[in-house]
């Protein structure tokens, strides 16, 4: 006890612990950076390969010469149609269902079945969605292979995730706000409309926007239900497709020209991939901006 300096000096055991602490931290950091690496590599590689073909013309002209030349206007427009229509169908259903589950439903066998269904629906492989869409919408409902049938199929695929993300956004609104409303005699609907929805909008919107990239990227669900190998449409015309037309789509187009068409210029599939990927990244960025903006306006 006479040597006060020695009291807080590391023993060999402490030094070993400090050493493993550093090693653990470095390993975790390394794994975390590994997440970023593939994205950078993929984007870099794609852009490098696609560089010669990228231009505004590439976006605005349709495929030509057996899809060995020209741009991607018709598949791009088709993807926009499919994504927008599927979200227009899935968003109201998903959001309203989530509002019911979160704000009205009590915990009973019915809600448990619905929640179980949502979870399982989210786990169904997309090719199974495709077969269901083929059976239910194309054949049974008689929609034929069409944008409408494909969008309905995509809507069913995105629905569970929209329900789940909306549920989460609603649950993040403090219970105290609801109680405050109920205690001045507000009905549940008034509480939802005046307080719950305005305060969960950022979360709901983010969830919906993130489904854009999912719907845009899937190939299987649209393959049997509405997307085609090739379809000529008028260039530069925004309403070139009708609801009951078949359409081309980016994901499907990438698949066909990479596997089914011989002698495609090398840059072409990479160009499609870059467009698809940048759409997804742009949409995700938009989701982040919306969330940050709406969150900055709410404080509690």
């Amino acid at each position: 006890m006479n040597d006060h300096h020695a009291v807080f000096q590391a023993t060999p055991l402490t030094r070993r612990k400090q050493c493993s602490e550093v090693i653990a931290m470095v390993v975790f950091l390394l794994m975390t950076s590994l997440i970023v690496l593939p994205l950078l590599l993929i984007v870099g590689y794609l852009v490098y390969q696609a560089w010669p073909i990228l231009s505004l013309d590439f976006l605005l002209t349709s495929p030509k010469h057996g899809m060995r030349a020209g741009g991607i206007w018709s598949p791009l427009l088709g993807t926009v149609y499919l994504v927008v229509l599927s979200l227009v169908i899935a968003t109201p259903i998903g959001v309203l269902a989530a509002v019911f589950l979160n704000e009205y439903a009590r915990d009973n066998w019915f809600t448990r079945i619905v929640n179980l269904a949502v979870i399982n629906l989210a786990g169904v492989p997309s090719i199974v969605h495709a077969l269901f869409g083929l059976g239910a919408f194309v054949l049974f409902a008689g929609l034929g292979k069409s944008i409408l049938a494909a969008s309905l199929t995509l809507a069913i695929m995105t629905l569970p995730v929209i329900i789940a993300s909306t549920n989460e956004a609603l649950a993040a609104v403090p219970m105290a706000f609801r109680e405050a409303c109920w205690n001045v005699g507000a009905t549940r609907w008034q509480t939802i409309r005046h307080i719950v929805l305005p305060n969960s909008m950022s979360g709901i919107l983010t969830g919906v926007i993130l489904q854009v990239s999912r719907a845009a990227g899937e190939t299987a669900p649209i393959m049997f239900t509405g997307a085609v190998f090739f379809k000529a449409i008028r260039e530069g015309h925004l309403f070139a497709y009708g609801l009951f037309d078949q359409c081309m789509a980016l994901s499907m187009h990438l698949f066909t020209i990479s596997t089914q068409v011989p002698d495609v210029p090398k840059a072409l599939p990479y160009g499609i991939a870059v467009v698809l990927l940048s759409t997804v990244l742009a949409v995700n960025a938009l989701a982040i901006i919306v969330r940050v903006y709406l969150r900055s306006r709410k404080k509690w």
Binding site: E179, C181, N183, T187, I195
Partner: peptide
């Protein structure tokens, strides 16, 4: 009517819960 009842019987909570407006 719960609405009329709660108009007549108000409640104040443990944690102040002003609405975010």
């Amino acid at each position: 009517s719960l609405i009329e009842l709660r108009k007549a019987v108000g409640m104040v909570f443990q944690r102040p819960n002003p609405l975010p407006i």
